[in-house]
Design a binder for these strands. Structure first.
Length: 420
DNA sequence: TCTGGGGTCCTAGGACCC
DNA sequence: TCTGGGGTCCTAGGACCC
């Protein structure tokens, strides 16, 4: 049996941990630049606020109903996620974190008839210990566990835990579960299946394996098997990321190349730091910047450059220099760049680097310097020490009007909270 | 005016090989 | 007019997830 733990309305719940006065009130968390709604409390959902809707489109409703808005605060969410995950990890022999707010875990060491009450206690403990509400689904496959967790979330009578154990439970659960809500069935697949007269998860399981394979290919067949109770999807964590991206949309479009270069240098530094934490190096680097796709009044422009590095590296200085050179080659004056990003590709383990016979760099020396810089950042906080190219203007190009303090991770904010 | 960010997997088709 | 067969590797794009 698989257990799936899923934090309810995770980002909103994180904000509420430190603002218990917002319990029972409509609350939303916004994406970058306070653009879109990315997390909603049940009260906000009840007002009809949809996932992903731009804030400006619901501004009248937000004002009228007194919806509380937060800018996203990822260091807070990451920290609370770690605390929830570590509580679950202590209860299991097999643990796979699937996202910032979800994990699968094994409960086979508990007798079958006690698994539900065991998980109910875990839900209570996490609520008391971290302050985050969690729902747990238990079933013989991961997809069914996801279905179960949705029922657990939906009906308070379940006390946060729902099981799909017997064939009777499975048929009942799937018969009132919309096909588009199944894990692995996206928008396109939903339309295809509905056109074939399939509206519930149960309808889908009554078709043949050949049908599932023909209409939705291999991933669809796996989902079909899982819904029938067979363990088919493996989500064992990849040991290391194969690509690393940092990209941002700016609050307003940028034309100034110096300002853009500063952003790209920062994206690059962020990617490189992630690369080093997984002891990897990148063989390729991709830089892009483009106009807003939503604007119909200006000509669209997409700048992009792919650089293959002579020697795979994770060095921030080196990666920034390649990224800026590539950017300068492709930059077009006058274009209103609204979004830009850096992607590191062909990521491989540090130990697999093939040296270049004609390499002129003293790589071991650069590596020692990089290690010192990382150490300073770890000790004194992010961006304690950065390169000149990362801070040429000191101008902020992002909007975060509703950001909560870094309650758990930033010493300066903690001191401020205590002082007030 | 204002519209997020970061990933993975799969497949089809082209290039290339013998 | 008629123009092989089989395989691998790579890439772009689509679809999906949170």
């Amino acid at each position: 049996m698989f257990a799936l733990a899923d934090c309810n309305n995770f980002f909103v719940s994180c904000e509420r941990v430190f603002r218990p006065d917002l319990e029972g009130k409509p609350v939303v968390v916004l994406s970058g630049n306070d653009g879109c709604v990315v997390s909603r409390s049940n009260e906000a959902k009840a007002l009809g606020i949809k996932m992903g809707v731009p804030l400006y489109q619901i501004k009248p409703l937000v004002d009228k109903e007194g919806v509380v808005c937060f800018s996203s605060n990822f260091s807070l969410y990451g920290d609370l996620s770690d605390r929830v995950m570590s509580m679950i990890r202590r209860c299991t022999s097999r643990f796979d974190q699937y996202s910032i707010d979800e994990c699968f875990f094994n409960i086979d060491h508990i007798a079958a008839d006690r698994q539900k009450s065991y998980c109910e206690q875990l839900v209570k403990d996490i609520r008391r210990g971290v302050g985050i509400p969690v729902s747990i689904g238990i079933a013989p496959s991961k997809t069914l566990a996801k279905v179960a967790s949705k029922y657990a979330k939906q009906y308070p009578g379940y006390h946060g835990v729902c099981e799909i154990r017997t064939e009777e439970q499975r048929l009942k659960a799937l018969s009132s579960f919309e096909i588009g809500d199944v894990w692995g069935i996206g928008r396109r697949a939903k339309v295809k299946l509905q056109n074939a007269g399939i509206y519930t998860a149960l309808d889908f399981t009554l078709k043949t394996a050949t049908f599932a394979r023909n209409v939705l290919n291999k991933p669809g067949l796996l989902t079909w098997q899982e819904l029938r109770g067979q363990d088919a999807i493996d989500i064992t964590q990849l040991p290391a990321k194969q690509s690393i991206t940092t990209s941002r949309t700016f609050a307003s479009a940028i034309t100034d190349p110096t300002l853009l270069e500063e952003q790209i240098a920062n994206f690059c530094a962020h990617c490189a730091r992630q690369l080093r934490t997984q002891n990897s190096v990148a063989q390729q680097l991709y830089v892009y910047a483009h106009t807003s796709a939503f604007r119909t009044d200006i000509e669209q422009h997409y700048l992009s450059e792919l650089v293959t590095l002579p020697v795979a590296t994770s060095n921030t200085q080196e990666l920034i220099s390649y990224a800026l050179n590539a950017f300068r080659k492709a930059y077009r004056p006058g274009v209103l760049y609204k979004k830009a990003g850096v992607v590191l590709l062909k990521v491989i383990p540090e130990t697999a680097v093939v040296p270049d016979l004609f390499d002129t760099k003293d790589r071991s020396r650069e590596k020692r310097l990089q290690r010192v810089l990382d150490h300073i950042d770890d000790r004194l906080g992010k961006r304690s020490i950065i390169l000149g190219s990362q801070m040429t203007s000191q101008q902020s190009v992002y909007k975060t009007e509703h950001k909560s303090p870094l309650y758990t991770t930033d010493l300066r904010d903690i001191i401020t909270i205590k002082a007030t």
